[in-house]
Design a protein around this nucleic acid. Structure first.
Length: 226
DNA sequence: GGCCAGGACACCA
DNA sequence: TGGTGTCATGGC
């Protein structure tokens, strides 16, 4: 009974935070890409990189007609590295893109639809087996490319949750993810928007105004006046 | 000139 | 299992 009360409270708090962020920033229209495959490429390239740099890399790939698994395999690795150069870690990321393209050929007949037809636990396990795809990248692909309801945990999310005093006792990726997924309905559209809003909030508030007195989270302000 | 950004992996104790 | 080093560009 007590656990049920706490669970309902968490749901209320998480819902309130979502509503405050949505009121402040509005719909974010994520993921900014023209196709599911471009989402996958962007998810890998955005690892520890600013999105503006990722956009340059994707533009290079597009102009080289390299935004397909077949072309990613055809383009020599050093050339691929030059194309993704603006996103940083260019050698590592070229290797990761090739690994994903090989996996798709060897296991899914180069079809993302076939890959995404797996149930979520299987899909996640397969994605995690690919070199360069960790938990956040896998979940980003599942949510924003396969459009299935998993909650993406990134550095911004950890920061927001922790500063609001909601951090789980254990602080692993799965623990943060459970906080959202066990306390919110499995709504793909909401998970999409929620994560995008947290990132937007992180960019606008946490970075530019780390002591913002007018934080949209109000009494839940991430940086309450001291 | 330093810090950080929509992380993942290899290696070590 | 957890901590650390490595990969690297571009904006502020």
């Amino acid at each position: 009974m007590k656990a049920e009360t706490e669970r309902r409270s968490l749901r209320q708090q998480l819902t309130e935070i979502y509503e405050l962020l949505f009121q402040r920033y509005g719909p974010q229209h994520w993921w900014p890409a023209d196709s599911p495959f471009e989402v996958v490429v962007g998810a890998i390239l955005t690892q520890s990189a600013a999105w503006t740099n990722v956009e340059r890399a994707i533009k290079n790939l597009s102009e080289a007609n390299a935004l397909s698994p077949v072309r990613l395999r055809q383009v020599p690795q050093d050339e691929l590295a030059q194309l993704v150069y603006p996103s940083g870690y260019y050698n590592a990321k070229a290797s990761k893109l090739k690994a994903f393209a090989r996996y798709l050929r060897d296991n899914c007949r180069d079809s993302l639809d076939e890959l995404f037809s797996r149930d979520v636990p299987t899909l996640r396990r397969e994605l995690l087996s690919i070199h360069g795809v960790g938990e956040e990248t896998a979940d980003s692909i599942i949510l924003y490319a396969a459009r299935k309801p998993v909650f993406v945990i990134d550095a911004y999310t950890r920061r927001v949750v922790t500063r609001l005093g909601l951090e789980p006792s254990a602080a692993r990726y799965a623990d943060f993810q459970r906080l959202f997924m066990e306390n919110l309905p499995p709504d793909e559209q909401m998970f999409n928007e929620y994560h995008a809003l947290i990132v937007q909030h992180g960019k606008e508030v946490c970075r530019r105004a780390p002591r913002c007195s007018a934080c949209c989270l109000r009494e839940r302000c991430l940086f309450p006046a001291s």
